[in-house]
Simulated scan of single mutants.
Amino acid sequence: MAALCCYKPGERSRLDYRPKRHTDHKSGGRMSFAWTEYRDLLIAAHQQLGGPIVPYWDNLNFHKDRRMRAFIDAHDWLTVDLNPGEGIWSVLRRTSRANTAFTDRDHLIRRLRHSLRQIQYRSDIIDGCLTATGLTLTTPRPQPQ
């Protein structure tokens, strides 16, 4: 599962995510997302948000990939920093995935999708992940009416 917490000044926070079903890696399938799949997620987020994006990453191997670095360097709408999305996985580990023995991949994916949908538009949770990085939004959020 790959996910981006999306923040745009003056708008509600949102979560964009992509699940991936892996083929059996012993038969030649990938065990993780390819750098191109992360690149495509960034492009989709850029198009949906209609402006520059700043993904905040951890030290995943694709973050260090020379092709990803070249892609980042070639696009002025893209800047990379620390990841508030890591907080989403922390929430999931304490809630939907806690003490669960998944029966198969489909069970895991169903549970993750359900859990992600529950928090997808919960600005309080998503904003808490931003706060945990020490970052802030520069423009106040619109208040619910």
Score class of each variant (00 low, 15 high):
Met31Ala: 14
Gly87His: 15
Arg30Ile: 03
Ser123Met: 03
Thr103Ile: 13
Leu41Trp: 12
His63Phe: 05
Asp106Gly: 09
Gly29His: 01
Asp104Ile: 02
Arg69Ile: 15
Arg21Ile: 11
Ser90Arg: 11
Leu82Trp: 11
Asp76Ser: 14
Arg12Lys: 13
Ile126Tyr: 03
His25Arg: 09
Leu42Gln: 10
Asp65Phe: 00
Arg93Met: 06
Gln48Phe: 04
Ile126Leu: 15
Ser123Pro: 01
Phe102Gly: 00
Leu78Cys: 07
Ser90Leu: 12
Thr23Lys: 11
Ile43Met: 09
Met1Ser: 02
Arg30Asn: 13
Asp73Met: 04
Leu135Asp: 15
Asp127Cys: 06
Val54Met: 12
Asp65Pro: 01
Gln120Thr: 03
Tyr7Ser: 05
Ser115Trp: 03
Leu78Lys: 09
Gln118Tyr: 02
Glu11Thr: 04
Glu11Asp: 08
Asn83Asp: 12
Leu116Gly: 02
Arg105Met: 10
Ala2Ser: 06
Thr100Asp: 03
Asp16Gly: 03
Pro9Ser: 07
Asp65Trp: 00
Gly128Tyr: 06
Ile53Thr: 07
Arg67Leu: 09
Trp77Tyr: 13
Met68Cys: 04
Thr100Leu: 07
Thr79Asn: 05
Pro140Tyr: 02
His22Trp: 11
Leu116Arg: 01
Gln47Phe: 07
Glu37Gln: 08
His63Leu: 08
Glu86Cys: 00
Gln143Leu: 14
Arg18Cys: 11
Phe102Trp: 04
Cys6Asn: 07
Pro142Asp: 09
Ser115Ala: 15
Pro140Thr: 08
Arg113Ala: 07
Ile119Cys: 10
Lys8Cys: 14
Arg94Cys: 05
Ala70Ser: 14
Ile88Trp: 00
Lys8Ser: 14
Leu4Ser: 01
Leu108Lys: 02
Leu112Asp: 08
Thr79Cys: 11
Leu135His: 12
Leu4Phe: 14
His75Asp: 10
Leu60Gln: 08
Phe102Arg: 00
Asp65Tyr: 04
Ile88Gly: 02
Lys26Asp: 02
Phe71Arg: 00
Ile72Cys: 09
Gln120Gly: 00
Ser90His: 13
Arg12Tyr: 10
Asp58Glu: 01
Ile43Asp: 07
Leu92Asp: 00
Asp127Ile: 09
Leu15Arg: 01
Thr95Asp: 05
Tyr56Val: 06
Ser32Met: 10
Pro140Ile: 01
Arg14Asn: 02
Glu37Leu: 06
Tyr7Ala: 11
His107Asn: 11
Pro9Phe: 10
Asp65Lys: 02
Leu15Ala: 02
Trp35Pro: 00
Arg18Asn: 07
Leu78Asp: 07
Leu135Ile: 03
Lys20Cys: 03
Ile88Asn: 04
Glu86Trp: 01
Pro84Leu: 08
Gln120Ser: 15
Pro19Arg: 05
Ser13Ile: 04
Thr133Val: 01
Ser96Val: 14
Phe33Met: 10
Pro55Tyr: 12
Arg21Lys: 13
His75Lys: 03
Pro52Phe: 08
Leu42Trp: 10
Leu42Asn: 09
Ser32Asn: 09
Lys26His: 08
Ala70Phe: 06
